[in-house]
Computed example of a mutant assay.
Amino acid sequence: MIEFVYFDLGNVLWKFDEDVACANTAKVFGVAPALIRDAVYGSGLQNRFEHGGVTPRGFVDELTRSLASTRKAVSEQVVLDSLSNMFVPIEEMVMAIDAVRQKGTKVGILSNTCHSHWDWIARQEHALMSSRFDAVVLSHEVNSMKPDDQIYRAAELACHTPVDRILFLDDKEENVLAAKRRGWRAECCVGGGSAVQMLIKHNVINESWSAGGSSS
């Protein structure tokens, strides 16, 4: 019996597109999107940000220094928001999470993400985030990223649930396999119909459930 469901944030609850982030930030700095991609993702800066190894201010300072071709002055918040404004909520997951909770199962978020992405999503005040999550485990807060073992241990402590009664939905196979090695139930899928099918498979929601509502 599943007592707790952890959802990944990116591509399970919110779709995202790094090309959009690079295009947004390129406009802010007045440079080509390829330069932003190299400076943010290619350099490992984003990875360190998601690990919690660099502060938002430090992130912007490093990015600005790496773009030696521009002298344009930009604010910290504008830069962080331009990179974060690439997320689109997966609307079907609003009712899916409600259906999980209606069955008496607790829900949480387990995500590799940075401070600014989480802050931007929270400020959207979308229905997907308005429901109370019983546990939220974010890589930048625990200084560990999936599939590293440490972040799963943190998630286990946060949800107070036996490992074999945790279900985890993530869009990356390596993250799913790491959860299974710890004894979790875990499935590789994306948000929407694929995620719903996994919730049905593990009897977390009723088979007759649909995006239009849930069956009692």
Score class of each variant (00 low, 15 high):
1 M>W: 10
2 I>G: 00
3 E>R: 15
5 V>Y: 09
5 V>T: 10
7 F>H: 05
9 L>W: 12
9 L>E: 00
11 N>W: 11
12 V>I: 12
13 L>Q: 06
17 D>N: 15
19 D>H: 03
19 D>Q: 11
19 D>G: 03
19 D>E: 15
21 A>G: 08
21 A>L: 04
25 T>A: 11
27 K>R: 13
30 G>F: 07
30 G>E: 03
30 G>D: 07
32 A>Y: 01
32 A>G: 02
34 A>Y: 04
35 L>R: 12
35 L>N: 01
36 I>N: 06
36 I>V: 09
36 I>F: 07
38 D>M: 13
38 D>G: 08
42 G>V: 04
44 G>A: 12
44 G>L: 11
45 L>T: 09
46 Q>C: 01
46 Q>G: 00
46 Q>H: 08
47 N>F: 12
48 R>T: 11
53 G>P: 02
53 G>H: 15
53 G>Q: 15
56 P>S: 05
61 D>I: 05
65 R>S: 07
66 S>L: 02
68 A>V: 08
70 T>K: 07
71 R>W: 03
75 S>V: 00
75 S>L: 07
77 Q>S: 13
78 V>G: 00
78 V>T: 14
80 L>S: 04
82 S>V: 02
83 L>V: 05
86 M>Q: 01
87 F>N: 11
92 E>F: 00
93 M>N: 10
95 M>S: 13
96 A>S: 12
97 I>T: 08
99 A>I: 00
103 K>R: 15
104 G>Y: 08
106 K>F: 06
106 K>V: 00
108 G>F: 03
109 I>E: 04
109 I>W: 06
111 S>W: 01
112 N>S: 07
112 N>E: 00
113 T>S: 10
115 H>S: 14
117 H>W: 09
118 W>M: 09
123 R>E: 06
123 R>N: 13
123 R>F: 02
124 Q>I: 04
127 A>V: 12
133 F>N: 08
134 D>H: 14
136 V>F: 05
137 V>W: 07
137 V>A: 08
137 V>S: 05
141 E>T: 03
142 V>I: 14
143 N>Y: 13
145 M>H: 00
146 K>F: 11
148 D>W: 06
148 D>N: 14
148 D>K: 12
152 Y>D: 05
153 R>Q: 11
156 E>R: 09
156 E>F: 09
157 L>Q: 10
157 L>G: 09
158 A>D: 05
163 V>G: 00
163 V>M: 12
166 I>T: 10
166 I>Q: 06
167 L>F: 03
168 F>A: 07
178 A>V: 10
179 A>N: 03
181 R>Q: 14
183 G>K: 00
183 G>F: 01
185 R>S: 10
187 E>H: 01
189 C>T: 15
191 G>P: 14
192 G>W: 08
192 G>D: 12
192 G>E: 13
193 G>R: 10
195 A>T: 01
197 Q>S: 10
202 H>C: 12
202 H>A: 08
206 N>R: 12
206 N>F: 02
207 E>P: 03
208 S>P: 00
209 W>Y: 14
209 W>A: 11
210 S>L: 04
212 G>F: 11
215 S>D: 14
216 S>V: 12
